[in-house]
Nucleic acid binder design. Structure first.
Lengths: 125, 125
DNA sequence: CAGTATCCGGTAGGATACTG
DNA sequence: CAGTATCCTACCGGATACTG
């Protein structure tokens, strides 16, 4: 893509397109779950162990949303004790590269942002 | 970047890196303002007209955050009536390409996601 | 093990009114 | 014109307890 490639993609319909993804990936846990599942299929508890700080409730909720949106598939095995495995679908996997692009930006520019915050805070007093 | 380039960029420190950008760009208006300012420097009211639905309060707040983070520069002219212009900094501009990558993903896959939601909803009853 | 169900506090963000 | 200052509400997400 070249330099001036139309932010109309973003503003397009008054921002509905961008809002759509933001609503999908911008909550506290979605990206983390997707990134974790990129390692391969995983069980509920396993997932919970890989994502420090997540509550059972939010793990369940976020997985349901991802399942609903077709980013994650859920497979329940009729066993006792129950076993449920989650896996990224092709659609889910396709989100990884753009997410990494963004993560790359974050890591690359985090220093500048923190520096800017300090000078901003200094100017405030 | 190649296919398996480590989602550790995302999960890295328990998600602190990704959380950092998400906190920065994932609110309701940030991306829209940045995309709009990509057209060039703009005054407060002008910005408000280009972004349908935004309240005065949220425009001010979001601009302050962007200024604090060094993504947007604010220039106030000592005139009556006052004139204030906002402009993307180099750092702000650097966010556009990654944002477009994400927007591209959203547009490309939105159909699949909506379809998935419908079958999911159908299965629920 | 893999979830629900319930309660509850913090906060994002809208509406409205006022001001240098 | 370019903002503050308040008030108010919805809802995100944590903690905890219970269950097939």
């Amino acid at each position: 893509m070249d330099e001036y490639q139309h932010t109309c993609m973003i503003r397009g319909d008054g921002g509905r397109a961008i809002r759509a993804i933001l609503d999908r990936i911008c909550d506290k846990w979605t990206m983390l779950i997707v990134a974790t599942l990129d390692d391969g299929r995983m069980r509920f508890t396993e997932l919970k162990e890989h994502i420090p700080g997540i509550s059972q409730r939010m793990l369940t909720l976020t997985l349901r949303h991802l399942e609903r949106d077709g980013l994650v598939s859920r497979t329940a095995y009729a066993e006792v004790p129950p076993r449920v495995e989650y896996e990224l679908t092709a659609l889910g996997k396709s989100l990884i590269p753009p997410a990494l692009t963004l993560a790359g930006w974050a890591i690359e520019h985090n220093g500048e942002i923190l520096a800017s915050r300090e000078t901003y805070a200094a100017r405030q007093k």
